[in-house]
Nucleic acid binder design. Structure first.
Lengths: 338, 338
DNA sequence: GCAAATTAGGTTATCGATAACCTTATCGGT
DNA sequence: ACCGATAAGGTTATCGATAACCTAATTTGC
């Protein structure tokens, strides 16, 4: 039985020896800097290949003070919305040799601060962070202490960092209010959860109510701080709202998931949609357009936001100019629920 | 106008000076190792705090040969399935001070190899990688050359690394076949895409067909290599399949999204489900249970797989024993489409 | 044909932190 | 009082790669 290969690590030095050059030369060849003849360059590459050399980026970054990853801080990687943004970001970063480091805040400012701290300790080349969160003071200080570009996404209302890419959630709320008003609904409701944490959702709520109230109407709200922002919360809150205000003829939900959850319950409860009650959501997730029921919603170009953010980051790193404010507006999608 | 603060970087040395100790002492205090008196410990902590010291993990990792991140390689972070797995992993890693580095292969072996290379260069403390991909030979070599634990997820059929957490997709395919047979369907179809890339989906397909054929029946397949694995492909392929085999009375789809897409089309086309045609998907995504139509599917505990993977990784890092094979079976969910 | 410019490659000093090892005090026990 | 054990903290040598600078050999221009 063999002793197993001596896991003798391969460093620049080992490659250099095999190619008969200095380690600096290898470093230059592998990064394509400096001037090295075609011949030795080939020899070095071959040596590296034969030894299966894998560079140690930690050492490299420490020395060059240029790291190869970008921190991306979002509320949750499991939420379709942010998952798609994340994917869009990563798609644009990887071709530039940048790795994506993720952090999930769960909409919690304290957790965000903690994440920021550990991320900054990794000396990221840049940071992409989701707005719309109750940031701690120390969190803000950490953000300023950063090196490299800072892109804030999702929330266009709250500016911070070099570039801001997102939408005005307040305007989005107003947009949906306008739709309800144009349709002539007059007993209007709103259903949401966790607005104390998710500032963007809160802004949508405020914009919605604001617009409705401008017409003299009022909005019946059912807001529960502790329920999840998911389908399951839809039925619960809808039922509560309808008990308090049975005359309600239209409800705007925090997101599509809750709207769809509510629709399911409304169907079972025999409430016709939109005959008796209109329903609208937010996000434009694929689940909003399923089968017979297509939820009226505002479709946010999620992947597009991510791509724009990744692009902005690499552009800045390359010294290009980037528009500091990029509005990416949601698109109104008329379904058959309103 | 002030010149702006000299962004004088704070290193261990600066903290040490302010606290009147050596930098080694600061290092020990901040990591809680070595023996330092309560008094100096306090003094050091305060100094670090006042200066807003943020450690440089790159230097730390280089020196200690222990990095603080884990590479997670999945097909796509934007796909609900893997997004939830990713989130589960991250949830378990962060409390241990481990950061999650993501890589998206898009089911492409060559891309996977490239990602592996850059990930390994960051000296990750461990690796969690999705199975069911056509791995390149060099990719396999890279995986062996790694340091630290390697957890493979999603695909229990193909073992590799220290721990394997996932399901047998072949079994899953057979399970759904059994359901169709029990219901007495006899003209059975299968619809899928990209099976050449997604080995797991291919396994489900094989298991499904295998089980059906055991009864002497055959399966009409509509498989298109180049269409996306999304809702939009459902209608296209369903229409094609029904043209070729109008008598088909049940179809198993590659995933829920395609099944739901198909349902929408079937409804418009006036095909009653499950009266004339039964439909089943795979994954148990929330979109499968919307409103009036609840797709029959196999629900995979996605977050659970992620959590188990994260847990296994940290367990191994702490020297604990971990079961090398953890089967996480999907749960059959009877909807009203079959 | 010779000085200047360019090419090809090597030397040396960090980057910021930690492992491993050392040096003093301080404290009991006998 | 003396010796070994423990506590508290400091010294030194890396970790693996790169920036910055330097040297020698060619090439180029006129």
């Amino acid at each position: 039985m063999s002793k197993g290969k001596p896991p003798q690590k391969v460093r620049l030095t080992e490659v250099a020896q095999r190619a008969g050059v200095s380690s600096m030369t290898v470093s230059k060849v592998l990064r394509g800097t400096g001037s090295i003849s075609e011949k030795t360059s080939e020899r070095v590459k071959q040596a590296a290949d034969e030894l299966g050399y894998v560079p140690n980026s930690l050492a490299g970054s420490l020395s060059s003070k240029k790291s190869t990853f970008v921190g991306v801080i979002i509320p949750s990687a499991g939420d379709v919305i942010f998952a798609e943004i994340l994917s869009g970001i990563n798609e644009r970063l990887r071709p530039h040799g940048l790795n994506t480091l993720i952090g999930e805040t769960l909409f919690d400012g304290v957790l965000e601060e903690e994440i920021l701290r550990t991320m900054l300790s990794l000396q990221p080349a840049g940071l992409i962070i989701n707005g719309g969160i109750n940031r701690t003071e120390r969190g803000k200080v950490l953000l300023e202490r950063r090196n490299g570009p800072l892109i804030q996404i999702w929330d266009a209302d709250d500016s911070c960092g070099d570039v801001n890419i997102g939408l005005s959630h307040r305007q989005a709320g107003r947009r949906m209010a306008r739709h309800f008003l144009e349709r002539g609904y007059s007993s209007i409701g709103y259903v949401g959860t966790e607005l104390q944490k998710d500032i963007c959702a809160h802004q949508r709520f405020l914009g919605f109510v604001e617009r409705i109230e401008e017409t003299g109407l009022s909005v019946t709200c059912e807001i529960e701080a502790d329920l999840p922002r998911q389908a399951s919360s839809g039925p619960v809150l809808t039922e509560r709202l309808l008990q308090r205000a049975p005359e309600t003829d239209a409800i705007f939900y925090l997101n599509d998931a809750m709207a769809v959850g509510a629709l399911s319950w409304l169907h079972d409860a025999g409430v016709s949609v939109p005959g008796k009650l209109a329903v609208a959501g937010f996000n434009g997730t694929s689940l909003a357009h399923t089968i017979r029921t297509r939820v009226t919603t505002l479709d946010v170009p999620r992947r597009g936001i991510g791509e724009a953010a990744g692009q902005a980051l690499t552009d800045i790193l390359q010294g290009h100019d980037v528009a500091p404010h990029q509005r990416i507006d949601p698109v109104f999608v008329a379904g058959n629920t309103s």
